[in-house]
């Protein structure tokens, strides 16, 4: 009887490991699609290609939501990792918020259709790039949290680096926007987008900080 339970325990464990990996894949993919969606918007505006990418992120978001819910329920229903499940739950929910932020920015592009002057294109591109890199590094840090706890610090370090770079890019971009001759309303509109994209990097850094604490808790 106990042996049967143990076999089931290992099978369930393997299924959950796969689901956690799929969730992280969804986050990583949504960051990459986001980066190219911003690039497409800067070139073509709200084109079909942009809408396809937006739809893609939408699907990834729903998929990630379902995976997260399932993982959380399994962890609690089967009292798995009783010592760390609270931390894992917090991590999953915070990572999920990043996908929501990414989806939100794409919705804003799609609804508000901001007119971005040519001299700002490079700034937006670089900001989206840095935010995407921060998310990518955070995904690696999160994978390390599950499999190779000592490597979390290395990846977290990169998250911090890309967040700082994103902040610099955002400041440069805001300066360029407000130094220009466009109308104040237009400036405010553009600033909103800068802040929303920068939020992705900022939130990644916050999650990385929490992750660092979870690591300390697990090694004590």
């Amino acid at each position: 009887m106990q042996l049967g339970k143990d076999v089931r325990l290992f099978r369930r464990t393997r299924e959950l490991e796969i689901q956690i990996d799929q969730f992280l894949d969804a986050l990583s993919e949504s960051a990459l699609v986001f980066k190219s969606a911003v690039d497409v918007y800067l070139k073509e505006g709200c084109s079909t290609e942009f809408n396809d990418k937006h739809l893609h992120v939408d699907k990834l978001e729903s998929q990630a939501d379902e995976l997260r819910r399932n993982i959380e329920i399994q962890l609690y229903a089967q009292t798995l990792i009783p010592e760390s499940r609270g931390d894992v739950l917090g991590l999953m929910e915070n990572l999920d918020k990043i996908i929501n932020l990414i989806e939100g920015v794409l919705w804003a592009f799609s609804i508000e259709k901001p007119e971005i002057p040519d001299y700002c294109h490079e700034g937006y591109r670089s900001l989206a790039d840095m935010s995407c890199e921060a998310v990518e590094a955070l995904v690696l840090a999160s994978r390390a949290f599950f499999r190779n706890i000592e490597a979390v610090g290395d990846h977290n370090h990169k998250v911090m680096h890309f967040e700082t770079e994103a902040d610099k890019a955002s400041t440069r971009l805001k300066r360029a926007i407000f130094d220009s001759d466009i109308k104040l309303g237009h400036k405010m509109h553009l600033r909103g987008f800068v802040e929303n994209i920068d939020d992705i990097a900022d939130w990644s850094e916050d999650v990385a900080d929490r992750l660092a604490i979870y690591v300390i808790k697990r090694t004590v």
């Binding site: 959950l16 894992v88 499999r147």
Partner: peptide, 20 residues
């Protein structure tokens, strides 16, 4: 544990059986 690089959930399953 440092060298085996087991998944957190796998470690948990092994620990349960180990405790039994």
């Amino acid at each position: 544990i440092r060298n085996a690089k087991l998944h957190l959930l796998r470690t948990d399953a092994y620990t349960r059986i180990g405790l039994l």
